[in-house]
Structure formats: structure tokens, C-alpha cells
């Protein structure tokens, strides 16, 4: 029997690099890795603090990091920031879930059925190119100034990246894999469940992550325009009242929210796509 050369030790082949424990690295190497990863961020924070303390920029406009941290602390535990964050999360979260609930199933359908895609494409392109913020006044007229109009404007902006990414993902599925499944007698449902859906997941996640960013963007805009609560409202309100550290605290919370959303989606994607080495 002739085999091509197979590696003797399979463990090295099968174990992804990321699984190697950090502890095995020497302390110096860890330090270097941290510096490479977070050096630029630390430099930025240092520059901010220096600019404020030395008065390069008026501390009234750019408060130091210590002042912002203090405002964040009091805002969260004594002020309204925690409540603002909760209501903002609720608005963006509801809209995002609704966009996922509509965008992914519709995208899966449109990606597979050419006639449906052709019939819906013109109107979707028109809707997509119409800025959600331009439509916000209409949504306010339709749904009033309450929660509904805010959730809807975010939904409007987030559904399109999800929908288009899903359609694209389904259409990009390798037809050779579909043919392979058919050659084994797989029916339509099996082909969808076992080939088309898993093959589309990476593309769907690209859409989800784009949509999460868009959701936060629209959340802030909507809250700045017509809200009496939420982080976006707090940014505006704090500026009016010249509570600049509080304003920065709200901005920091928004940034952290964005980072958290992205990390959450990335973690989910890594779990679902463990087979795919290259997820960035």
C-alpha cells in the first residue's frame, strides 16, 4: 500500500495557534505583545490627559480623563446615565432584533429565488438609498414622538445591511457544493439546511456587524433630535448645560456600547464558524 507522506504527529496540525496558553510565553514577550496591541491607545489617552492638564486645550472644553471618569462614576451611580443607557440599549436592541428577524429570512428567500429578488430589488434599492434620517420626520408623523418612531428609524437603517449581506451570502454559495449534496439525493430542505445556510453565515455576520454600527449611529441621531432620555439625548443635554465631563462620559459609554456589540457578534461568529480560521 502506498500512502503519500502523512505527518506523524497530528496534534500540531489540528491545534489552532490561538489555543496555546499565554502563560507559556516569557513575561518580556507578554509585555511586548501588550505594547504592540495597546501602545497606540495608551499614547492617545496620555496625549489627551496631557493636553488637558497642561492647558494645550482649555480644560473646560477638554476635561482630563480623571474628570471624565469621575463624571462617569457619579452619572452611573447617582445620576441618570444608567437609566439612559438602558433606554438606549432597548431602542437599538429592539430595532436590531426586528431587522434581524426580517432581514435574514427575507434575504435567505431572495438569495435563492431569482424571480422574487428581481421583483423586490428596485423598491429595496430605492428604500435603501433614502436616508433613514431624512425619513425620520415621516416616521414621527406616522408613529408619534414616542418610542415607536425611534425604534423604527433605527430598524429602517439596519435592515438593509443585513438583508443585502444575506442575499449576497446565499448567492455566493459554491454551486459545486450544492450539486454534490444533490448527487447524494439531498432534497431542497436538506440542501438549504446543510449547505446554503452554513455557507452563508460568514457573509451574514458581516452584515450583522455593519448593522450594529449603523444601529448605534442612528440611535444617537434619533435621540439627539427627538428624545428626552437616552445616551444621545444626554450628550446634547449635557452640552447645553455645559456639563462637559458628563457629555464626555456619555460619549465614552456610547463608544463602549459599540465595542461591546462588536465583541458580542464577533464571539458569536467565532462560535458558529470555528471551521473558519480567518475571522477579523
Amino acid at each position: 500500500m502506498t500512502y503519500e507522506a502523512l505527518p506523524r504527529d497530528f496534534s500540531g496540525l489540528l491545534k489552532p495557534r490561538a489555543d496555546r496558553p499565554l502563560i507559556l510565553l516569557r513575561p518580556l514577550a507578554i509585555l511586548r505583545r501588550l505594547a504592540m496591541r495597546f501602545g497606540a491607545l495608551a499614547a492617545f489617552l496620555a496625549l489627551w490627559q496631557t493636553a488637558s492638564t497642561l492647558g494645550w486645550v482649555s480644560p473646560a472644553i477638554l476635561p482630563g480623563i480623571d474628570k471624565v471618569a469621575a463624571a462617569l462614576w457619579t452619572g452611573l451611580f447617582e445620576g441618570t446615565l444608567a437609566g439612559d443607557m438602558a433606554i438606549s440599549l432597548q431602542r437599538a436592541g429592539l430595532a436590531f432584533l426586528a431587522a434581524v428577524g426580517l432581514g435574514i429570512p427575507l434575504g435567505l428567500l431572495m438569495g435563492q429565488l431569482e424571480p422574487i429578488e428581481r421583483a423586490l430589488d428596485p423598491i429595496l434599492q430605492l428604500f435603501r438609498q433614502t436616508s433613514a434620517l431624512a425619513l425620520y420626520p415621516i416616521f414621527i408623523l406616522l408613529f408619534g414622538l414616542g418610542e415607536m418612531s425611534k425604534v423604527f428609524v433605527i430598524f429602517w437603517a439596519t435592515v438593509f445591511p443585513i438583508l443585502l449581506a444575506t442575499i449576497g451570502g446565499v448567492k455566493e454559495v459554491d454551486p459545486k457544493l450544492v450539486e454534490m449534496a444533490r448527487s447524494y439525493g439531498a432534497n431542497q430542505l436538506t440542501v438549504f439546511r446543510r449547505v446554503i445556510l452554513p455557507a452563508s453565515i460568514p457573509a451574514i455576520f458581516v452584515g450583522l456587524r455593519l448593522a450594529a454600527t449603523t444601529a448605534l449611529l442612528l440611535l444617537i441621531a434619533a435621540e439627539m433630535i427627538g428624545a428626552r432620555s437616552g445616551l444621545g439625548f444626554q450628550v446634547m443635554n449635557a452640552e447645553y448645560n455645559f456639563q462637559i465631563p458628563l457629555m464626555f462620559a456619555a460619549i465614552v459609554l456610547l463608544a463602549l456600547l459599540g465595542l461591546a456589540a462588536n465583541a458580542l457578534l464577533l464571539g458569536l461568529q467565532r462560535r458558529l464558524c470555528r471551521w473558519n480560521e480567518r475571522i477579523v
Binding site: 457544493l177 449547505v195 452554513p198 471551521w275 473558519n276
Partner: peptide
């Protein structure tokens, strides 16, 4: 019959064992 194509046409998200089982599972 079963077809063997020029390309292996394996499903990249399945392990080797599950790829091999796929033909039977599809049925």
C-alpha cells in the same frame, strides 16, 4: 451510484468525519 468529482467538494464547516457521513445523512 455515488459521484466523485475532480475537486473533493468537502463542506469546509464540517469535520472530516462529518463530511464523510454527509452523503448518508443527506439520504
Amino acid at each position: 451510484c455515488a459521484v466523485i468529482f475532480q475537486e473533493p467538494r468537502l463542506l469546509p464547516w464540517l469535520t472530516v468525519l462529518r463530511n464523510v457521513a454527509f452523503g448518508l445523512e443527506a439520504r
